[in-house]
C-alpha cells in the first residue's frame, strides 16, 4: 500500500502526536508514505472566505499536481485538508469548466494535474484499504474494557456524504475502535462541530461546542475521546480548561488521536504513543493497559 502523504500545517506543529503515531502505525501496517514534496497550505476553512472558493482551490491544486508524479493516492489525516484537497480533486474529475480554468491557471506556473489521483481520508484508508481484519490481526494488546467516544468531527464524513460513511452518524470510526478491542460508546454528537477556528476570535463558541462533546462522552461513560482531526483534538484538549471554567465542569476527559490508541494496542514502542504531547493527561485512563509516563 503506497500513498502520497499530505500532512498539512498542523501535523508539524499542534498535531505532532498525530504525526508521530500515524507514521509509526502506518509503518507497522505496511503502509508506505511519501510526503508530497514542497506541499503548501490547503487554505483550511479560511482562505475561501478571503479570496473565494475558486482561487483557494487553485492554490490547493498545486499539491495535487505535485503528488501526481508519484502515482499513488493521497492520504490526508486532517479533515479540513481532506475537504479542500478532495473537493478540488473531484472538481478536476467531474467539472469540465473548472478543470479547463484550473488547467489554465496551473499552466501559468508550468504545472499540470491530470486528475489521476484519489484523495483519501485516513479512516477510509484504514477501513477500506488496510481492512479491519488486518488491524485486528496486528493488535497485540487489545484495549478490552476501554470505553472510547469516537469523535469523527464534522467535515470528514460530510465532504462526500455516504461515499464511505453516513454523513451524520458515521460508523467506520467506531469499527476501528472496536478492532482495537475497545468499546465504542453511543456518543450521538460524534460528528458535531467542535467550534473550529472560532477558538481564536470567539473562544466561548468553541468552549460551548466542546462542552457538549465532552459531556456527551461522559454521559456515555467514556474513558476517553479519540479524535481524527488535528483541529478537533486541539480544541477538545487545549480548551478543556476553558470549558471547565465556563461550565463548571469538574472531571477531565483525555482526548487522543486514534492513531495513538492504535499504537498502544499494536504494542508499538512508547515513542509511537507520543502521549507526552497530550494536554489532558491520558495516563489514568490507560493505566490498565500498561501505559505509564
Amino acid at each position: 500500500m503506497k500513498y502520497s502523504f499530505y500532512p498539512g500545517c498542523s501535523m508539524e506543529a499542534t498535531a505532532v502526536p498525530y504525526l508521530k503515531s500515524f507514521e509509526a502505525v502506518a509503518h507497522a501496517l505496511g503502509i508506505e508514505l511519501k510526503e508530497i514534496p514542497d506541499w503548501n497550505c490547503c487554505g483550511a476553512t479560511v482562505a475561501s472566505g478571503v479570496i473565494g472558493d475558486y482561487p483557494a482551490q487553485v492554490m490547493t491544486s498545486r499539491n495535487l499536481a505535485l503528488a501526481e508524479p508519484h502515482g499513488a493516492d493521497i492520504v490526508v489525516p486532517c479533515s479540513s485538508c481532506y475537504m479542500n484537497l478532495a473537493i478540488t480533486n473531484r472538481k478536476f474529475k467531474e467539472d469540465g469548466h473548472f478543470r479547463q480554468m484550473a488547467d489554465e491557471a496551473l499552466a501559468s506556473v508550468g504545472m499540470k494535474y491530470g486528475g489521476s489521483l484519489n484523495v483519501r481520508q485516513i479512516i477510509d484508508v484504514m477501513v477500506n484499504d488496510v481492512g479491519l481484519d488486518t488491524i485486528k490481526s496486528k493488535v497485540k494488546k487489545p484495549l478490552t474494557g476501554l470505553r472510547v467516544a469516537g469523535y469523527v468531527g464534522c467535515q470528514t464524513p460530510r465532504v462526500f456524504p455516504w461515499e464511505f460513511d453516513d454523513p451524520e452518524q458515521p460508523v467506520f470510526f467506531d469499527k476501528i475502535i472496536e478492532a482495537l478491542g475497545a468499546t465504542p460508546v453511543k456518543f450521538p454528537v460524534k460528528a458535531r462541530c467542535c467550534g473550529s477556528s472560532h477558538s481564536v476570535a470567539q473562544p466561548e463558541i468553541t468552549a460551548d461546542s466542546c462542552y457538549n462533546i465532552i459531556t456527551s462522552a461522559q454521559d456515555d461513560q467514556a474513558h476517553l475521546i479519540a479524535a481524527v482531526c488535528p483541529m478537533c483534538q486541539l480544541n477538545l484538549d487545549a480548551y478543556q480548561d476553558l470549558v471547565k471554567e465556563r461550565h463548571k465542569l469538574k472531571t477531565s476527559m483525555p482526548v487522543l488521536f486514534f492513531t495513538q490508541l492504535m499504537a498502544i494496542a499494536m504494542d508499538l514502542p512508547p515513542d509511537a504513543w507520543a502521549l507526552k504531547h497530550n494536554i489532558v493527561s491520558p495516563f489514568t485512563a490507560l493505566a490498565k493497559f500498561g501505559v505509564g509516563k
Binding site: 508539524e12 505532532v16 473565494g52 482561487p55 498545486r62 506556473v109 487545549a238 494536554i279
Partner: peptide, 28 residues
C-alpha cells in the same frame, strides 16, 4: 507539551508559484 513551535516552518519553496496561482485564479 511540545505543540507550539516557536519558530515558523520553512516557507514553501514554490511560494512564488502559490502566489501566482492565486492571482491568476482571481483574475480568471
Amino acid at each position: 507539551h511540545g505543540r507550539m513551535p516557536l519558530m515558523p516552518p520553512k516557507s514553501v519553496k514554490g511560494l512564488k508559484d502559490v502566489q501566482k496561482l492565486v492571482e491568476v485564479a482571481k483574475a480568471q
